[in-house]
Measured scan of single mutants.
Amino acid sequence: MTYKLILNGKTLKGETTTEAVDAATAEKIFKQYANDNGVDGEWTYDDATKTFTVTE
């Protein structure tokens, strides 16, 4: 399945997608991606749209 991440960081904003077997796997990938890019904030997930959002 395709999952989407919306980044609302102070210095980085944008979107990315990943292919993952489930939401938990996608979350791990996205949290590593956000960490690698210096984004740390409040996480939400919308199962209907398979979208994670992180807001600093």
Rank of each mutant, 00 (worst) to 15 (best):
M1I: 12
M1T: 15
M1S: 13
M1P: 08
M1R: 10
M1Y: 12
T2W: 12
T2P: 08
T2G: 05
T2A: 07
T2N: 07
T2R: 09
Y3M: 01
Y3Q: 00
Y3I: 01
Y3P: 00
Y3W: 06
Y3T: 00
Y3D: 00
Y3G: 00
K4M: 08
K4T: 09
K4Q: 07
K4L: 10
K4S: 06
K4G: 04
L5T: 01
L5D: 01
L5F: 08
L5E: 00
L5A: 03
L5S: 00
L5P: 01
L5I: 04
I6L: 10
I6A: 05
I6W: 04
L7I: 05
L7M: 08
L7Y: 15
L7E: 02
L7P: 01
L7F: 14
L7Q: 03
L7R: 02
L7G: 02
N8G: 04
N8Y: 10
N8I: 15
N8F: 06
N8R: 07
G9M: 12
G9L: 14
G9S: 13
G9P: 03
G9V: 13
K10P: 11
K10N: 15
K10R: 09
K10M: 12
K10F: 15
K10H: 14
K10V: 14
K10A: 09
K10D: 10
K10T: 15
T11K: 09
T11L: 10
T11Y: 09
T11D: 12
T11G: 11
L12I: 13
L12K: 04
L12M: 15
L12G: 08
L12T: 09
L12E: 13
K13N: 13
K13Q: 12
K13M: 10
K13L: 07
K13H: 05
K13Y: 15
G14T: 15
G14F: 15
G14M: 07
G14R: 10
G14E: 14
G14N: 09
G14K: 14
G14S: 12
E15T: 07
E15M: 04
E15H: 06
E15S: 11
E15G: 04
E15A: 07
E15V: 06
E15P: 03
T16R: 13
T16P: 03
T16V: 14
T16M: 12
T16H: 11
T17W: 15
T17Y: 15
T17N: 06
T17Q: 12
T17D: 08
T18P: 01
T18S: 08
T18R: 04
T18A: 13
T18I: 12
T18K: 04
T18F: 06
E19V: 14
E19D: 11
E19Q: 12
E19R: 06
E19L: 13
E19G: 11
A20G: 05
A20S: 08
A20V: 06
A20N: 04
A20W: 02
A20K: 02
A20T: 13
V21H: 12
V21Y: 12
V21I: 15
V21R: 07
V21F: 13
V21A: 13
D22S: 08
D22G: 04
D22P: 01
D22T: 06
A23M: 15
A23E: 10
A23G: 05
A23S: 11
A24D: 11
A24I: 14
A24K: 12
A24F: 11
A24E: 10
A24L: 12
A24G: 08
T25F: 05
T25M: 12
T25Y: 09
T25W: 12
T25Q: 10
A26H: 00
A26P: 00
A26N: 00
A26E: 00
A26G: 02
E27V: 07
E27D: 08
E27I: 13
E27R: 06
E27S: 12
K28M: 12
K28Y: 14
K28S: 13
K28W: 13
K28N: 15
K28L: 11
K28D: 11
I29N: 15
I29W: 13
I29R: 06
I29Q: 06
I29F: 10
F30M: 03
F30K: 00
F30G: 00
F30N: 00
F30P: 00
F30T: 00
F30A: 01
F30S: 00
K31V: 10
K31L: 07
K31N: 05
K31S: 05
K31D: 02
K31E: 04
K31I: 13
Q32D: 09
Q32E: 10
Q32L: 12
Q32N: 09
Q32H: 09
Y33R: 03
Y33I: 07
Y33K: 03
Y33D: 02
Y33M: 07
Y33W: 08
Y33A: 03
A34G: 04
A34Y: 03
A34P: 01
A34T: 09
A34W: 03
A34M: 05
A34N: 03
A34V: 12
N35W: 12
N35V: 15
N35P: 02
N35T: 15
N35F: 15
N35I: 12
N35G: 10
D36I: 10
D36M: 12
D36E: 14
D36P: 01
D36H: 09
D36A: 10
D36W: 06
D36G: 06
D36L: 14
D36R: 07
N37M: 12
N37Y: 13
N37H: 09
N37I: 05
N37D: 03
N37W: 14
N37P: 01
N37S: 10
G38Q: 08
G38F: 10
G38K: 10
G38Y: 08
G38V: 04
G38I: 04
G38S: 07
G38H: 13
V39N: 03
V39P: 02
V39S: 03
V39T: 04
V39F: 08
D40S: 09
D40R: 15
D40A: 15
D40M: 12
G41H: 02
G41P: 01
G41A: 02
G41Y: 03
G41W: 07
G41T: 02
G41R: 01
G41D: 02
E42F: 11
E42H: 10
E42I: 14
E42A: 14
E42T: 10
E42S: 10
W43R: 00
W43P: 01
W43S: 01
W43L: 03
W43D: 00
T44L: 09
T44S: 08
T44A: 11
T44M: 07
T44K: 11
Y45T: 01
Y45E: 01
Y45R: 02
Y45D: 00
Y45P: 00
Y45F: 08
Y45G: 00
D46L: 04
D46A: 04
D46Y: 04
D46P: 00
D46F: 04
D46H: 10
D47K: 10
D47L: 12
D47E: 11
D47Y: 08
A48M: 15
A48D: 10
A48E: 14
A48G: 13
T49G: 05
T49E: 09
K50E: 03
K50A: 13
K50D: 03
K50H: 13
K50V: 04
K50Y: 07
T51G: 02
T51S: 06
T51N: 02
T51L: 05
T51M: 05
F52K: 00
F52V: 01
F52M: 02
F52T: 01
F52D: 00
F52R: 00
F52I: 01
F52A: 00
F52Y: 11
T53Q: 09
T53G: 03
T53W: 06
T53S: 07
V54Y: 03
V54D: 01
V54F: 05
V54E: 01
V54N: 02
T55W: 11
T55N: 11
E56T: 05
E56R: 03
